[in-house]
């Protein structure tokens, strides 16, 4: 591989819009574009093409259907609740992991990523087993009259699991970079510990926590594998939107499936855009 002979200057793309002296732009950029188009853009375009077959009226009619409405409401509602839970506990976990030293800390830190690594189907059947009437947790909750498995609560539980790492991992680097002088400054100014925490330490975390919250929410809206086993999948009650997409597909109602998918996608992209705007705003101000 030792090729130190003088070779002629590498050919660069003629376009002056591209700057950079290293070779390989044409190949790298070309491959990137081809692959991106083939794997991502073309399939998503097919979605738009199919959705256009639905028309405005068809779209409205689809969304007016009680079953579709219920599924979308459940997916968005459960994702919202789960993301809120994760926002609170995510900040707590990030706080404890970055600021305190306790036995097993690095183990706990590593474990936070488990939901990213564990296949969703595995999470799904395990949560279902845990919360079933004869499961470890279901058995404890049943006498209290709380049903998690095969109920909407089950959807939320699955989404809390899936979304847990998002807030922790967005907030953690911020807390780790926190300058100790800042809380010392608050203390010298006479602020109580509570005032220091709530007025000085937590507010700068809000944008990051919001980003993590949004990521968890977006993930929750589209989540499928971990939910279908625990939810019970009763149409209109515990049937989530992604499941309805699958069902419509199995019924060869491609247009209906596409319509629901478009709603989910539109919301996801809007959220993505909101996150970018938020980060831009934060960077500019702070």
């Amino acid at each position: 591989m030792t090729d130190l002979t003088m070779s002629p200057a590498p050919a660069r793309p003629a376009r002056s819009l591209v700057t950079g002296v290293l070779p390989g732009f044409g190949l790298a950029f070309g491959w990137t574009l081809v692959w991106l188009s083939f794997i991502v853009l073309l399939p998503l375009a097919a979605l738009a093409w199919k959705a256009s077959g639905l028309g405005i009226d068809g779209f409205v009619a689809l969304l007016a259907s009680p079953r579709v409405r219920a599924a979308l409401e459940l997916s968005f509602g459960a994702a919202l609740i789960a993301a809120l839970i994760n926002a609170v506990f995510g900040v707590l976990v990030a706080w404890v992991l970055t600021r305190y030293r306790f036995p097993g800390r690095s183990l706990v830190d590593a474990a936070v990523d488990l939901p990213f690594a564990l296949p969703t189907a595995v999470a799904g059947i395990t949560l279902a087993a845990l919360f079933a009437r004869n499961g470890w947790l279901g058995g404890l909750l049943a006498p209290l009259g709380i049903e998690v498995a095969y109920s909407r609560a089950g959807v939320v539980v699955a989404l809390v699991f899936v979304g847990l790492p998002f807030v922790v991992r967005t907030v953690q680097p911020l807390l780790a970079d926190f300058d100790r002088e800042v809380e010392e400054a608050a203390a010298t100014l006479g602020a109580s510990r509570a005032a220091t925490v709530f007025r000085v330490l937590l507010p700068p975390l809000v944008p990051a926590a919001l980003t993590g919250f949004t990521l968890a929410f977006a993930r929750g809206v589209g989540e499928y594998g971990s939910i279908v086993f625990i939810a019970g999948n009763m149409p209109g009650v515990t049937e989530i939107a992604p499941l309805l997409v699958v069902i419509k597909l199995e019924e060869f109602d491609y247009v209906g499936a596409t319509g629901i998918a478009v709603v989910m996608l539109a919301v996801s992209f809007a959220l993505l855009f909101a996150i970018n705007a938020l980060q831009h705003w934060t960077e500019k101000r702070w």
């Binding site: 300058d179 002088e181 800042v182 010392e184 400054a185 608050a186 203390a187 010298t188 100014l189 006479g190 602020a191 109580s192 000085v200 507010p203 700068p204 702070w286």
Partner: peptide
């Protein structure tokens, strides 16, 4: 304790509250 000592402290890196 520091918060009751009524001292003014100016930190090397200012330690201003950025938000």
């Amino acid at each position: 304790p520091v918060r009751e000592r009524r001292v003014g402290f100016v930190f090397q890196h200012y330690a201003l509250f950025r938000h």
